Amino acid sequence: MNILHIDSAITGDASVSRKLTADIVAKLTDANPGATVTHRDLNDGVPAIDSDWFAAVRLAPEHPTPEQQALIATSDAYLAEVQAADVLVIGLPVYNFNLPAQLKNWLDQIARAGKSFRYTAEGPEGLLTGKRAIVAYSAAGTPFGSDFDHASGYLRFMLGFLGIADVDFVAADRLAMDRDAGLARAQDALDKLAA
């Protein structure tokens, strides 16, 4: 089993989502002793896509410049980690009712026509099939799955668009209202999670 462990929280050691992703990875590796883990901390920085990225990665020039080659290599590296993974463990802290910018940037880097999805006569088809995602959701005030939780539904949709339909959530929500209850809900979901 190859596990891709993705963190995106900006709060360092105080991060609930980072603790949850670490606990999920530990549960998976305990149950699968031969598993390999690749850790990617998106808080280290993920370049946003822009017109230079579009010209290099999407338009794929026959003779890319050195600058374009660097943009292509970065995007390819993010995508290769996902392609090699059997399980993705993704930290999803909610900021201002949505996912962090660095997590959105990562999704933009890996959502590549012809590589992670393709268009067919029947509509788009995800190419990253046969994978599982476990998402560690944390929020101070946004209830998981509520009308103003714009993070979990979007992430589930994007993963499904790319072909990853097997998605579980471990949610620690409403932490500002009742931290102990929120953490207890997450622990209960973690305990029930199949490894």
Results as ranks from 00 to 15, higher is better:
residue 71 L to F: 12
residue 77 A to M: 08
residue 62 E to K: 12
residue 55 A to H: 14
residue 61 P to S: 05
residue 83 Q to A: 06
residue 71 L to I: 11
residue 64 P to N: 02
residue 82 V to D: 09
residue 65 T to S: 13
residue 77 A to C: 09
residue 60 A to R: 05
residue 62 E to M: 11
residue 89 V to C: 04
residue 75 S to E: 02
residue 82 V to W: 12
residue 53 W to P: 03
residue 67 E to F: 13
residue 80 A to R: 14
residue 65 T to N: 06
residue 86 D to H: 09
residue 54 F to N: 14
residue 75 S to L: 03
residue 76 D to T: 00
residue 57 V to P: 01
residue 67 E to P: 13
residue 69 Q to S: 11
residue 56 A to W: 11
residue 77 A to Q: 11
residue 85 A to K: 03
residue 62 E to I: 10
residue 89 V to H: 06
residue 89 V to Y: 05
residue 57 V to R: 01
residue 73 A to E: 02
residue 83 Q to S: 08
residue 74 T to I: 08
residue 68 Q to K: 00
residue 60 A to W: 01
residue 68 Q to M: 09
residue 73 A to H: 02
residue 88 L to E: 07
residue 75 S to P: 01
residue 84 A to S: 13
residue 80 A to H: 14
residue 76 D to M: 02
residue 70 A to C: 07
residue 55 A to T: 11
residue 83 Q to K: 14
residue 79 L to C: 09
residue 53 W to G: 02
residue 76 D to R: 01
residue 64 P to Q: 09
residue 54 F to C: 15
residue 63 H to Q: 15
residue 79 L to N: 08
residue 69 Q to R: 10
residue 73 A to P: 05
residue 70 A to D: 04
residue 75 S to K: 00
residue 78 Y to W: 15
residue 75 S to T: 02
residue 78 Y to I: 11
residue 87 V to I: 11
residue 56 A to H: 10
residue 84 A to H: 14
residue 53 W to T: 04
residue 57 V to A: 05
residue 69 Q to V: 05
residue 54 F to P: 11
residue 74 T to A: 10
residue 88 L to K: 07
